[in-house]
């Protein structure tokens, strides 16, 4: 049986205490298999960001477990958590994705270099990642020499470089026009079809349409789920 890349098991995240307590996430269970793209929808304050932070090991659940490729985040020391994030998890935000002073290839190779790989090895992996996405010509361009859509596609390449198989995307199409945004989502979809696991937070039903499953959150709970036919 295929092992999930990401599992959230009965996760609750509580902020504050006493009268100011907020249950940002309340008993949520989600698992994502290799090849799956799961979208999360919900209004502001529904727990989407909290779920993303737990899934990316940026935060720990108050109760329950988050398991990323068989490693429970609650059992790791801070340095081990940092290594897990570096090696296993890629994140694509709405903006501020790429470092302006680095080329696309350097940006993509950076996580590998931070993890102790040689520069030449990181470069090879980065160029390979760009090639897979048909973005070869961007390798030596700086972010300000790329369009917004190209930058986001490079960001997805970076999110899944090396051994990373989990990509978390928070409204990755941002202010891009609809056609360019589709191109970014098509790349995310392609990476998942190639075996990655994706978690996409979005307000747009249209974007959620790219996912295999759509989870609806409200007040920290999963209240609905839609599966592709």
């Amino acid at each position: 049986m295929t092992e999930p890349i990401l599992q959230l098991v009965d996760c609750t995240r509580v902020h504050g205490q006493g009268e100011t307590v907020v249950r940002a996430l309340d008993g949520v269970s989600v698992q994502i298999l290799p090849g799956e793209l799961v979208a999360v929808m919900g209004p502001s304050g529904s727990g989407k960001s909290t779920l993303l932070n737990l899934a990316g090991a940026l935060d720990l659940p108050t109760s329950g477990h988050v398991v990323i490729e068989n490693q429970s985040t609650s059992t790791l020391r801070p340095d081990e958590l940092a290594a897990l994030r570096r090696r296993r998890v890629g994140v694509v935000f709405q903006d501020l994705n790429l470092i302006p002073s680095l080329t696309a290839a350097e940006n993509i190779g950076l996580p590998l270099e931070l993890d102790g790989r040689r520069v030449s090895e990181a470069r090879r992996a980065a160029v390979g990642a760009l090639h897979e996405l048909g973005l070869d010509e961007l390798a030596d361009r700086y972010p300000d020499q790329m369009s917004g859509g190209q930058q986001q596609r490079v960001a997805i390449a970076r999110a899944l470089v090396g051994e990373r198989r989990l990509v978390l995307a928070d409204e990755p199409t941002g202010a891009l026009d609809s056609v360019t945004g589709d191109g970014v989502l098509a790349v995310l979809r392609a990476r998942c079809d190639a075996g990655a696991a994706g978690l996409l937070v979005t307000h747009e039903a249209r974007h959620a349409g790219w996912a295999d499953r759509v989870i609806y959150l409200r007040d920290g709970k999963v209240v609905d789920e839609a599966v592709a036919r």
């Binding site: 940002a24 209004p43 304050g45 307000h203 007040d219």
Partner: peptide, 16 residues
Amino acid sequence: GPPSAAPASPNFARPA
């Protein structure tokens, strides 16, 4: 709910 919880967005609103 959370103090930051805005009224449900037009995209999604599903009350318990």
